[in-house]
């Protein structure tokens, strides 16, 4: 099972929940955590893990072979991202726009386009006890996160045991990178905070889940600040609130020093237990 931890708003506590839930579960059974926020991965900062391997990750971009090209212009017409332009008798490719959708290469009538591998980032795998941690890091200047996210999920699924719980820390927002994560997950926890800003972005995230037809529930972090509007909204929309993690300055201080929090907070352990119980995360 892949359990995604996502949110509309950034900074609501995705990484806090991901790292603490995964570490807490690893005290009892095997679990894998994958940090899919490849543009700014930070789960690793909280985990005292030992690195097993690191490897380069590649994206495929089209390459033009002049001798095979009949200059039909179909590739330019098809490409939704304006990555290919036919200029006179030359085809010019703009790799940074390429989403590796395969259309141009697969459908080129003259076999003039083939893929070449371009390095886009680096994946690492590490472990501590029962916890496996996978992280991918996008190269600086690389625009397309989706392909790296997708490959990282595939890698993690292949590596993990068939019945192993995989928790994935999603990127913030509701755009393509998040949708890729959600699309490949079985269940999504949306972390929010009980503020107007939190509610606004939660609504956007909920809409995304509904478009993608994915099962989800909410966890409220920093419970006690702001107002009750998030709770009223969830009630009105029939959205399950799995847990409410108290706002606690002590925890914020521990977090800022890179510590896991569940060992220091009974409330957090109780809330993690609620999540584990409601989602049947333990075997």
């Amino acid at each position: 099972m892949i359990l995604a931890i996502a949110s509309g708003k950034g900074g609501t506590g995705k990484t806090t929940l991901s790292t603490n839930l995964a570490s807490y579960i690893s005290e009892k059974q095997k679990v894998t955590l994958a940090d899919l926020d490849v543009e700014e991965p930070n789960s690793g900062l909280f985990l005292d893990v030992e690195k097993d391997l690191e490897k380069d990750m590649f994206k495929k971009i089209p390459e033009w072979k002049e001798s095979e090209c009949i200059l039909c212009g179909k590739c330019q017409e098809w490409c939704k991202f304006n990555c290919i332009q036919v200029l006179g008798d030359e085809v010019m490719i703009f790799p940074e726009f390429c989403h590796t959708c395969h259309m141009c290469v697969d459908l080129c009538p003259g076999s003039a386009l083939s893929f070449k591998d371009v390095r886009m980032g680096r994946l690492s795998k590490s472990h501590k006890g029962n916890l496996t941690f996978v992280e991918s890091r996008l190269n600086i200047g690389e625009e397309q996160a989706v392909s790296l996210i997708s490959q990282t999920i595939d890698y993690t699924e292949n590596y993990a045991d068939e019945d192993e719980l995989i928790i994935v820390d999603a990127p913030p927002g509701a755009a393509c990178p998040v949708m890729e994560v959600v699309d490949k997950s079985d269940f999504v926890i949306l972390v929010t905070e009980p503020t107007p800003f939190g509610l606004n972005d939660l609504k956007i995230a909920v809409e995304t889940m509904r478009v993608l037809n994915r099962e989800f529930a909410v966890v409220i972090n920093r419970y006690g600040i702001g107002n009750d509007d998030v709770i009223s909204y969830c009630k009105a929309e029939n959205i399950d609130i799995l847990a409410k993690i108290n706002n606690d300055r002590k925890l914020a201080e521990l977090y800022s020093k890179g510590n896991l929090l569940y060992k220091h907070s009974e409330n957090l352990r109780e809330q993690l237990d609620l999540i584990i119980e409601k989602l049947h995360l333990l075997k």
Binding site: Q76, F81, N82, Q85, V86, L87, G88, M92, F94, F97
Partner: peptide
């Protein structure tokens, strides 16, 4: 409506 690649696309038009 174009999200990506407006530059090359317009440049192609001018070309």
């Amino acid at each position: 409506q174009v999200e990506h690649g407006a530059g090359p696309r317009t440049a192609k038009l001018v070309f």
